[in-house]
Every structure is written in structure tokens, then in C-alpha cells.
Design a protein around this nucleic acid. Sequence first.
DNA 1: TCGACTTTGTGCACACGTTCACAAGTGCCT
DNA 2: AGGCACTTGTGAACGTGTGCACAAAGTCGA
Lengths: 248, 248
Amino acid sequence: MSPHRPAPLVRQARTPRDGIPEATVARLPVYLRALTSLAEGGVETVSSEELASAAGVGSAKLRKDLSHLGSYGTRGVGYEVDYLVYQISRELGLTQDWRVAIIGVGNLGHALANYGGFVSRGFSVAALLDADPAVIGHTVGGLTIRPVDDLERVVAEEDIHIGVVATPAGSAQHVYDRLVAAGVTSVLNFAPVVLDTPEAVMVRKVDLSTELQILAFHEQRRLATRLAADVRRTAVDGDGGHAAEVAT
Amino acid sequence: MSPHRPAPLVRQARTPRDGIPEATVARLPVYLRALTSLAEGGVETVSSEELASAAGVGSAKLRKDLSHLGSYGTRGVGYEVDYLVYQISRELGLTQDWRVAIIGVGNLGHALANYGGFVSRGFSVAALLDADPAVIGHTVGGLTIRPVDDLERVVAEEDIHIGVVATPAGSAQHVYDRLVAAGVTSVLNFAPVVLDTPEAVMVRKVDLSTELQILAFHEQRRLATRLAADVRRTAVDGDGGHAAEVAT
DNA sequence: TCGACTTTGTGCACACGTTCACAAGTGCCT
DNA sequence: AGGCACTTGTGAACGTGTGCACAAAGTCGA
């Protein structure tokens, strides 16, 4: 209920306090995925060049990223795939299982609950909650949907570490506040709102609308410059008629 | 010696070429949402401080961001909400409608297709495609699912600007290639793979798995430091007891 | 009209992230 | 054993993004 944040100096997502830069952390899952894929293909060793190419980054960046974890890797040879998989997994905390609760089992929450495969090893959906009496009690992906009023109890009983907010925008802040009050310190937010996060809680946002708008910006820019080019060309041609198809 | 490395690697679609920094573009949708919300609340004018607070950023950052669009805003007063909404919408290209095709109508694609409301003004889902004969022909959100084999034709007929890849990981690259070949230059990828994007195409990725792993990293770190603190305290207490077995 | 007050827009310094280039290791081959 | 080809790890340069602090520019009241 506090519309204004009193402290703009809150340290939120930035974690320069120790070792690993945030940008590197954000790339580790990508490396891990590429490595897992390589391991399944029977590859035992990769060079930074190969792995970087598989992960879609530059090799220097990859080496610097990995160097933050330690000096795994052998000069003249590369990195042992299995070992690196283990090290990254350990660093990301995937050696233990994180219990996730999804709040809001609408279209999106439903999809997330059923997406067990794509939530790779290390996570398990342990609870589904919703406010709508019409869906409470139904079973999705082997879990029974429980009423959101029981949120605090569910978090405690199921030992929830991560909350996924998939509610409508209007309920998101309230649900978030209750999650935090119940002791959850990591939240993934799908609701299209800016959550007020005064506490030392890690919040990450997934926002389709924002992503589309960013795409639209670039698409529009592309069209604008192409159009300008056409106009310029037409002017130079002195062709007062219809702007022709500019095939290239 | 380093033989000439012919890999400058500028293939990524970074666009610092002119005006607006990428980081700013990524925040404009957030500002727009906050402004729209304010406008609905009847607010006519906001200061950078207020808007920044609503958007969860610092006021200086917000002012600098907006200054990239132009000098809207009046000193001593603030920004006129409606005007700013229009300017940001225009800059983001939301004054026209972008036609979106969703490829892959599984759990996620289904949810996206029904999420018409949360895809705010400026976008319309114009086509649904899938490879599974079992779902082709079904109607979701008022659209009939068409076979993915017709992708090229659908893109042309429906004048698709943006492709949303919601297929399984294995099909994503293939679908992406076909989209690009069909002339789509903006793609939003939900599949957990790194797409090989050699062309000047704008690709953005939404990846639940990655987000969860980043949360897990911080959560683990939090637990680790807390645990370390407990151990330290126990040691200081001189209690040689059984307190913890965190030795590893 | 003038002065006090408010808020924008921005120059500047700093922090963070990326890329280059190469010395330091490592294994293979002769 | 010694040289050679290869690859990592990293110092240094560069570019981008952020936050501070303040002059410029506007409003409002007397």
C-alpha cells in the first residue's frame, strides 16, 4: 500500500559484492544448456571457440565468464564437458532441488504447470494456487490447485523457495507481498506490472508485452529507414510515378 | 602467432547506430505502462520523480531516457501524461498494428493465443500454426490453427511482421529459418535453444528455464552466506557441538 | 514586474561490460 | 629432449550505462 519508494538507493539485482558479475550469471544457463547438449552428443572436450559458437557469444567473453568460476579448463586442450557441466550446475545451485509454487493457474499458469520438461533439472513445481473457486480442486500436471488463501500455509508446508506470479496484473502486488511475508525470497513475475519490492528479494520479470514492443521499435525503425531510402531513390530517379518494387 | 582471425562477429542485432540506446528502448514499455495507468487514473501531469517511482527506476535515469525522444516536458511542471503516452507509442511503433503469427500451439502457444488482453494495443495475433495434425483445424481465440507447412503462404497472405516461436526446442531452428526466408524480420523465441541468426533479423528470447536458474543462483548464494554466518557464530560461541555439517 | 520555487535536461565522473591481443601453459610429434 | 601448434586466462583499451549535481527554464504569487 505504499505507492512511493522512499529509498532509491536500494541495492536490487546488482550483486557486485563478490565474485560473479550479474551479466555472467545470466549467461551461465545458456552455457549449461549448450554443454548438456554436447554431452548428450558424446563430446568429451570443447574449446572456448566451439562452446562460444554453440552458445551464440564471443569466445573471449565465454572464457572470461568461465574464469569467474575458477580455472577449469586445460590450455592447449579446452574444457572437459562433464566437469564443466558439474561446476556450472553447482555454481547455479542446481545440485539441489528448488521447490516452486505457481500462483495463478489461468492460461499461462496452466501452461507453466504442464511445462515440466522445459523446467530443466533442479526445479520441481510443488504447489499450484488460485483465487478462482471454479478451478480450485482441479488437478493440473498431477497437482491439485489449492486456494490462494492458504498461501502462507502452503509455502511453509511445501518448503517453497521460489514463487511464480502468474496472476492478473491487479492481483500481482498483493500476491507478491504475501509471498514475501511468508518467507519467499525469489520471485518470477509474469504479470505485466512493476512490483514494488522494498525488501531484499530477488525478483525477475518475464513480460511478453514488453518484448513485443521492443521488437516493434526495431521493426518500425527498419521500415522507416527502408522507406526513406526508397523515397530518396525515387527523388534521384526523378520518377514522379509510382515507387517501383525495389527488389534486391 | 595468431593467424588472421576473420571473425569480427557483429552478427548480433545490436542497434547503437543512431539515436536511442538499447537500454532505454527496453525501458520505454515500462514507462508507457505506468503512464497509461496514470492516465486511466485521471492524472494529467507527472514529474519525473513520480513517474520514475511508478516505473521502479531512478528519476535521473528516467529524464535521460525521455530526453532521447526529444524535449517533451515542461520545467517546473513535469510531463503531460497524454502527450508523453503518444510520443512513446509513436517511438515504439505502436501507432500501427503489428500482425503476429504464433508457431506452435502447445501449452504455451495456446496460452499466448488466448492472452489477447495482455498483448496491449498495437499487436494482433493474425495466425496460428502447428505441425501436429491433431490440433490443425481447431479454433483457439477465434483463429483456426493452420498447418505449419503453409507458413510461407500464411506469412504473405496475412502480412505477418512478427513471428512467435513456441515450438519444442527441436523444431525451433527450422521454423526460424523458414520465417526468415519468408521475410519475417522480427522473432520472439520461447523455445529453449540458442538460435543461429546469421541475418539482420531481430530476435528476442523469453526463457523460463534461464530465469529460474538465475533465481536459483541468488537463492543458493543467500543460503550459503546465511549458513556461513551461522557456522561462524557457532564457532565464536565456542560450542563444539553438533550444530551443522556444512563441511563440504 | 520581480523574485522565490519547482522541475527538466545534461555535463561529468564513475562503474560495468565487452573486445582485443598476447603471455603462459599444455600436449603432440619428431 | 626440444620445438611446435594450440588454447586458456587475463591485462588493457574501449564502449555503454548509471547516478550526481547543477544550470537553464519555466510557474506562481505578490
